[in-house]
Amino acid sequence: MKAARSDPKTSITRSDIWYEDGSVVLQAQHTQFRVHWGVLARQSSFFHDMQGLPQPPDQPSVDGCPVVKLPDDIADVECLLKALYSPTFLAQAALPLPAIGALIRLGRKYDFRDLLDSAVRRLEFENPKTLEEYEALKAPATNGKTYNPTRIVGYPGIMIDFFTLARENDIVSVLPCAYYRAVAHYIPLFDGVPRGDGTTASLPPKHLRRCILARDKFISARFQEGYPLGWLKKWDHDSDCANPAKCAQARSARVYSCLDLDPLLNLYRSDEDQKVLCSACYRHATESIRAGRKKLWEDLPKFFDLLPWSELKNDL
């Protein structure tokens, strides 16, 4: 940052985003950014309309450029301008979540529609609406059991921060997946999660309560007929079983292993069952699990008292 000018009351700081041929100065708190009306107006209907308004006689100016004061966070404004002026900014494979938040907040507020849509797409990519997209986010290096963000820079507590950003900006399409991850991956919801920078990601009481209640619902539903583990409780496929006694024992052992290892194993896979069930029973179990996983995903919003997938429309 470089010092620009000062007065008896405040010290104004000039941002590194300062174009000598700029035609307007944006000021957030005590930091100024000299940019171009044309760049702002081309992307934002808000600034397009503002540019056409007559300037009041007492309009503050810097080097002949009008000063437009914004009641926004400096970091948010800086992020927005980087996205507008730097071709490589949005081309990055992964952006920090604070940058995504800045583009969503200011994109909504000032109608930078392209930037807003781009940021929302990243959030939706990490929290998809389909089971197939969810599965694609699992890291192959860990046998498909770990989620690693790819379009948003990951850190401890990011799943909790997904909630806050999505809720504050009415991006409801991402909530079922984000909620499920938080509940199913044993995030210490009551204590919050240290982000590693001295702050803690935590859920507001309302959302904490929703997660706790949903966890109880998941535990209650896990062995219900139609869900991924329902086949372990209700078995009606002995007709072509090659070894009924062995397969029955294997199913019983699987029930206890699911209880011991993961009480929320609702998106259970059948890989291990191939080793202990006969081919006919394994085929039946695989079909039941596939159908159950699909049903669970379709019902996922219901566990968190959300609208069905088809009705989760973002208010942007």
Score class of each variant (00 low, 15 high):
33 F>I: 06
110 Y>M: 07
110 Y>F: 02
249 Q>H: 13
217 K>R: 14
179 Y>M: 08
205 P>M: 06
145 K>I: 09
72 D>S: 01
133 E>G: 11
14 R>D: 10
246 K>H: 12
293 R>A: 00
53 L>G: 07
223 F>Y: 14
187 I>H: 13
167 R>S: 15
37 W>Q: 04
173 S>C: 04
228 P>I: 01
75 A>Y: 04
127 N>Q: 11
266 N>T: 14
314 N>P: 03
278 C>A: 08
202 S>D: 02
188 P>D: 13
169 N>A: 05
124 E>D: 05
244 P>M: 08
20 E>V: 12
204 P>Q: 10
138 K>Y: 10
164 T>M: 02
245 A>E: 14
54 P>C: 02
10 T>A: 12
199 T>W: 05
181 R>D: 05
292 G>V: 03
289 I>K: 01
274 Q>N: 04
29 Q>I: 15
21 D>Q: 10
292 G>Y: 02
278 C>L: 08
211 C>Y: 07
155 Y>H: 01
98 P>S: 02
123 L>G: 08
169 N>D: 13
280 A>D: 10
72 D>G: 03
286 T>F: 07
259 L>G: 00
257 S>H: 13
106 L>D: 08
207 H>D: 15
79 C>I: 14
254 R>K: 11
171 I>G: 09
157 G>H: 07
218 F>P: 11
273 D>M: 10
128 P>Q: 10
249 Q>S: 13
162 F>T: 00
